[in-house]
């Protein structure tokens, strides 16, 4: 292994290392705190929450800094810690929501009692090609906006799902949710998201 390790600048001596790690963390605060904050703010849309998450990220980093191998950049390493913190935040948001069960009533607004589409909820043709949509930053803003219109508990589940790149059953375990409830929430959230996108993006 000839890769240059970030920590290799640090002396082996434990006492000195402690001091150096502290000053290294301070440099990281100066260099990366603002970027991490922007990211947290973007994901949570809430200033205090974002600040808390950045703080937790650095306190966790301070504890784990000995494990920072230097194989990745400090920015990437800190971003990964933040990502976990944000995921935990959304997981708790789901867990602590009073109404976190998938309500069938949402589906009822899309379908008739016989199970066919209600006229106003029928999926219309989307003009743009998927490739164009995915590359359009405005589309991603509308999507973001639509996400925020979901009930908080569902928003939590959706964001958690995409932040945590895990298998469905692992996510269910972490959320404390049955698989059936999990995909029902995703189904209802998707119905709402699709409808919101169609209204906001395609029928402007």
């Amino acid at each position: 292994m000839s890769s240059i390790k970030y920590t290799s600048r640090l002396p082996e001596n434990d006492k000195i290392e402690g001091v150096n790690q502290k000053s290294m963390l301070k440099i990281w605060v100066a260099d990366y705190a603002d970027d991490l904050f922007q990211r947290a703010l973007y994901l949570t849309s809430h200033r205090e929450t974002a600040e808390d998450l950045v703080q937790e990220t650095f306190l966790a980093a301070a504890q784990q800094v000995a494990r920072f191998s230097g194989n990745s950049s400090p920015r990437t390493w800190l971003a990964a810690i933040l990502r976990n913190k944000v995921a935990d935040y959304f997981r708790d948001r789901y867990r602590k929501s009073p109404n976190n069960q998938p309500e069938a009533a949402v589906e009822d607004s899309f379908f008739t009692p016989e199970g066919t589409w209600c006229p106003e909820a029928m999926p219309a043709e989307w003009d743009d090609s998927p490739v164009n949509l995915l590359d359009d930053p405005n589309f991603s803003h509308v999507l973001e906006d639509c996400l925020k219109h979901l009930p908080p508990a569902w928003h939590g589940v959706v964001v958690y799902k995409f932040l945590e790149d895990r298998k469905g059953n692992e996510i269910c375990q972490k959320l404390g949710i049955t698989t059936t409830n999990y995909w029902q929430i995703l189904h209802r959230a998707k119905l709402q998201l699709r409808h919101c996108l169609e209204k906001q993006w395609f029928n402007q």
Binding site: R39, Y42, R83, W126, P130, S140, H141, L143, F162, R194
Partner: peptide, 28 residues
């Protein structure tokens, strides 16, 4: 149509949360 659009939304959400660790600012 729903199935196709749902798959597109799925992809868009992936991009939103996975690839965007670097980009942060909402331009508006």
């Amino acid at each position: 149509r729903y199935a196709g659009q749902s798959a597109v939304i799925e992809k868009a959400l992936h991009r939103q949360f996975e690839a965007k660790d670097e980009t942060t600012q909402n331009l508006d």
